[in-house]
Every structure is written in structure tokens, then in C-alpha cells.
Amino acid sequence: MKIQGIHHVAIICSDYQKSKSFYTDIIGFEVMAEVYREERASYKLDLSLNGSYSIELFSFPDPPKRVSRPEASGLRHIAFSVTDIQSAYEELVENEVQAEPIRIDEFTNKRFFFIFDPDGLPIEFYESAQ
């Protein structure tokens, strides 16, 4: 098997409109397709970043809460690379997103910080090479 890359990340949210706004208006993903699946009482929103399919955002009636803290087994977080970590931080704070302080990765010396989506999913912003 030869894996070519990650196709997408699927996220289940508890408040569809709030999460849709967060991922599009604040984070900057573009809507590729939006479908309401009546038989599942669920929305499926396909989001892209720089023209590449990236996130499937789902809504389901009353999804169970995800354990995030203390850290539990399973997927820990998603991470986005940015060339200007300070600008990304400031833009999120200007949009009233609470962000943890910028830290330095002890192994790569790159800067990074975390925010949380409307359901508490940890999202990391990581400084990429310029």
C-alpha cells in the first residue's frame, strides 16, 4: 500500500450553525458542498482549504460529548500550518477566539499554539518554514 496523504478529517459538532461559522468565517475554510440528510437528521458540510478537500463537518442529534481533558486515548487534535504564527494568533484573538499562549516546540524550535473549536476540539496552529 502506498498512502498519498490525508484525504480529510471528519468532525461531529453539537451546534451545526455555530461550528459552520467557526470553520468558515473565523478559520477560513471554503464550503465545497452542504447536504442535509433527512434520514439521519444530519448535515454534512464539505470544507476545503486552498482548493483541497480537508474537513467533513457533521451534525447529528444529541451526539455524546468527546473526552478531551484529561487527555484520553484516540485522536488528540488537528493541526494547521501557518507561515506567520503571530498574525494567525492575533487574527483569532480579534475574532474573540480564546487562544493559549504561543509556545516553542522544544525539538524543532518552531512556534505553535492551541485553540478550541465550539465543541472543545483542540486545534493547533504550527509555524511552517517560510
Rank of each mutant, 00 (worst) to 15 (best):
F29G: 09
S73F: 08
S128Y: 01
S52I: 09
F116K: 15
I55H: 03
G74W: 02
E90S: 13
F22N: 13
G74E: 03
E30Q: 15
R66G: 01
E96W: 01
I12Y: 12
G120A: 08
D46K: 11
P61H: 00
T24M: 07
A33E: 13
G28P: 04
P61A: 02
Y53C: 03
H8K: 08
M32G: 09
E91L: 13
A88M: 14
R66I: 02
K18G: 00
V9K: 02
D15P: 02
S19H: 08
N109V: 03
M1T: 09
I115N: 11
M1Q: 06
L92Y: 05
Q17E: 14
S21V: 10
Y53M: 07
V93R: 14
D84Q: 08
E127M: 08
F125E: 12
I11A: 02
R76F: 12
T83I: 04
S81E: 14
F116R: 15
M32P: 03
D84E: 11
Y126F: 14
D46N: 13
L121Q: 04
S54G: 08
L121K: 03
S59D: 02
N109Q: 10
H7M: 04
E71A: 13
D46L: 10
E124C: 07
Y53Q: 07
N50K: 15
E106W: 14
Y16A: 07
A79V: 04
A79T: 09
L49M: 15
E71W: 07
V82D: 07
F58S: 05
Q17P: 08
A41Y: 00
E91I: 05
C13A: 09
I78M: 15
Y53N: 06
E39T: 01
L75E: 05
I115W: 11
A33S: 07
G5R: 09
Q86C: 02
I11W: 03
Q98T: 09
I12M: 14
I104V: 14
F58W: 12
Y23M: 07
I104R: 08
Q98A: 05
Q86M: 07
K110A: 14
E96G: 00
Q17K: 12
S21P: 00
I11F: 01
S54I: 13
Y36M: 00
E127C: 02
I115A: 08
R66S: 00
E30R: 12
S73Y: 06
S68P: 03
Y126V: 05
F58V: 05
E127P: 04
D62Q: 15
F60P: 01
E56D: 15
A88Y: 07
E127G: 07
R103D: 06
G28D: 04
I102T: 04
I27L: 12
I115S: 09
A10K: 05
R103C: 11
Q98C: 06
F125Q: 15
L45Q: 11
I26G: 04
A41R: 03
L92S: 01
C13H: 13
F116V: 11
V97W: 11
Q130T: 04
I102R: 03
S42A: 13
A79D: 04
A10L: 05
F112D: 06
F114E: 07
T83P: 01
I6T: 11
I11L: 11
Y36N: 00
I11Y: 01
R103P: 00
R111W: 03
Y23G: 05
